[in-house]
Amino acid sequence: MSADRRPHGDGPHEDGTAVRDPAAQPERTRMAWRRTTLAFAAVVALLARGTLHDGGPPQAYAPAALGALVWLGFLALAHRRIRALDVPRPGPLGTRTAYTAAVCTLSVPIFGVVVWLW
């Protein structure tokens, strides 16, 4: 983020008193998206481990492949939101983004049950 795009109030005032940093809000939200994407990757890796460990016919790998695809989708979603957050006063999270994020998360336990049933 370049200095001229930072919201006013960021950094010390002219009189030298430090103010709370409003820019940390988008920053923290950006990192929250990153953490969530990382956690998602770990869960998908565990899902893949389950299918690869069992061996079996090629179609048994389908849930792991779908899980990886869903993770890529989540990564793209997080990336879009992170780009939208890189402005001084970001707009609120869109309901469609929130729904998509939840559906991505919801699909992982479903794949997990599918792996188990296979």
Partner: peptide, 13 residues
């Protein structure tokens, strides 16, 4: 916007 972002982080948590 800070309250909305806080709500978003809670959602992500």
């Amino acid at each position: 916007y800070r309250f909305s972002l806080a709500n978003e982080r809670t959602f992500l948590a």
